[in-house]
C-alpha cells in the first residue's frame, strides 16, 4: 500500500496509523546495515583478495538488477533506492565461498530477490530471509562449488608465490572430519577458510555493536541464539567459544536472524526464535549431513515465525487475563 495514494487534493495526507514519524526510513535502516557490514566486507577482501571483491560486486549487481527489473515488470516505481536489495546482495555475497565463478553470485542473487522476495509481494512480505533463500538454492544446486574453500592470504606464507590460491576446509569441516581444532585467535581475527564475510568474528562484532547502539537490531534474537549455541556446545563437550566463532554463526545471528520481515517481532517470540535457531544450528553441526547449519536453522525458524508470533503476541492493553491474540 502506498501512502501517497491517499493524498487528498487539499494537500492533507490521509493514512492509517501510525502517524508519528521519527525520520527512520527503510533507507536509513538499510544504510545502517550496510555500514555495519563494511568491516566484514573489507576483512573478506583483505583475507581472500580481489576475487572476494568481484564476488561481492556480482552479487550486489545481480540483486539490484533483479529488483529493478521486477519493479519494471510490475509497473511500480523502481524500488532499488530503498537499499533492501543492496543489503540482500551484500549478505548473500558474504556467505559465499570467496573463489566462486562470478556467475554463481548472480544466479543466487536473482533467485534470492525474484523467488525469495518478489513473488511474495516484495519488501516486507517475504516469509524467508531472501539472502539465505539464495544461499540454500546455491547449496542445493551447486554443492561442489559451494564447498570449495580457500586459504586466507597470510596463512600460507611459506608457499607464497607458488600458487595463486590454495583450497582448504573450514574450521567446522576440520573439527568434524579430521578432529583438528582451529586456534581461537585465528577464528576471532578471521584468518581461516570459510565464506567471504563470515570468517572475521572481530569485524562482524564491530558491525553488530554499531547496529545495537543505533537500535537497528534488538538484542533478544542474537542473545538467545548465541546463548543457546554456547550452552549446547558446552553440553556436547566442545569449547563454546569455538562454536560461537566458527562458521557463519556471528553473521547469521546478528545480521540474518534479526531481519524484521522474516524474523519474529514479538519480544517473547524473538527469544523463542533465537533459541530455536540455536538448537537447530547445533543439531545440524553435530549430527547433520552438513557441517554448518546456520542457513537451514534460520530458514526453518523463519517458517515457524507465524506460529511463534501467534502464541507470543503481547496482551492488548486492558485485554484482561486472557491472551487476546486472536
Amino acid at each position: 500500500m502506498n501512502i501517497d495514494q491517499h493524498l487528498d487534493p487539499s494537500g492533507l495526507s490521509l493514512a492509517p496509523s501510525p502517524h508519528f514519524r521519527n525520520g527512520i526510513t527503510v533507507r536509513s535502516l538499510m544504510l545502517d546495515v550496510v555500514i555495519a557490514l563494511l568491516p566484514a566486507t573489507v576483512a573478506g577482501i583483505y583475507f581472500f583478495g580481489m576475487d572476494a571483491a568481484l564476488v561481492t560486486a556480482s552479487a550486489i549487481g545481480g540483486a539490484l538488477a533483479t529488483e529493478a527489473g521486477i519493479a519494471r515488470l510490475r509497473g511500480e516505481p523502481i524500488s532499488i533506492r530503498d537499499g533492501s536489495a543492496l543489503v540482500t546482495g551484500l549478505l548473500l555475497a558474504l556467505c559465499l565461498p570467496p573463489g566462486v565463478p562470478l556467475w554463481l553470485p548472480v544466479v543466487g542473487a536473482i533467485f534470492a530477490i525474484a523467488v525469495g522476495k518478489a513473488l511474495f509481494g516484495g519488501l516486507g512480505m517475504n516469509i524467508f530471509n531472501p539472502a539465505l533463500v539464495g544461499r540454500a538454492f546455491l547449496v542445493a544446486s551447486f554443492p561442489t562449488l559451494m564447498t570449495t574453500w580457500r586459504w586466507p592470504v597470510g596463512s600460507g606464507d611459506w608457499m607464497a608465490g607458488e600458487f595463486d590460491a590454495l583450497s582448504t576446509a573450514t574450521p567446522l569441516d576440520l573439527l568434524r572430519y579430521e578432529g583438528v581444532m582451529t586456534p581461537l585467535t585465528d577464528l576471532f581475527v578471521g584468518r581461516v577458510g570459510g565464506s567471504l564475510g563470515e570468517t572475521s568474528v572481530l569485524a562482524l562484532l564491530l558491525g553488530a555493536a554499531y547496529l545495537l547502539a543505533r537500535g537497528v537490531i534488538d538484542w533478544r534474537i542474537p542473545t538467545a541464539y548465541l546463548g543457546t549455541v554456547a550452552v549446547l556446545a558446552g553440553l556436547f563437550g566442545v569449547n563454546p567459544l569455538f562454536h560461537l566463532f566458527a562458521g557463519s554463526l556471528m553473521l547469521g545471528a546478528f545480521y540474518m536472524a534479526t531481519d524484521y520481515v522474516s524474523g519474529a517481532v514479538t519480544p517473547g517470540g524473538r527469544v523463542v526464535f533465537g533459541i530455536g535457531c540455536g538448537v537447530l544450528t547445533m543439531l545440524i553441526r553435530i549430527y547433520g549431513g552438513y557441517p554448518e547449519g546456520v542457513t537451514f536453522a534460520i530458514l526453518l525458524m523463519n517458517a515457524a515465525v507465524p506460529l511463534i508470533e501467534r502464541f507470543t503476541a503481547p496482551r492488548r492493553l486492558g485485554g484482561g487475563g486472557e491472551s487476546s491474540a486472536h
Binding site: 523467488v115 525469495g116 516469509i127 524467508f128 533463500v133 540454500a136 538454492f137 547449496v139 542445493a140 537447530l280 543439531l283 545440524i284 549430527y287 547433520g288 549431513g289 552438513y290 547449519g293 542457513t295 537451514f296 536453522a297 530458514l299 526453518l300 523463519n302 517458517a303
Partner: peptide, 12 residues
C-alpha cells in the same frame, strides 16, 4: 522453499 529448508535435516 520449505523443502529447501528441510534439506538441513539431510543425512542426520
Amino acid at each position: 522453499l520449505l523443502s529447501m529448508a528441510f534439506m538441513g535435516f539431510a543425512g542426520f
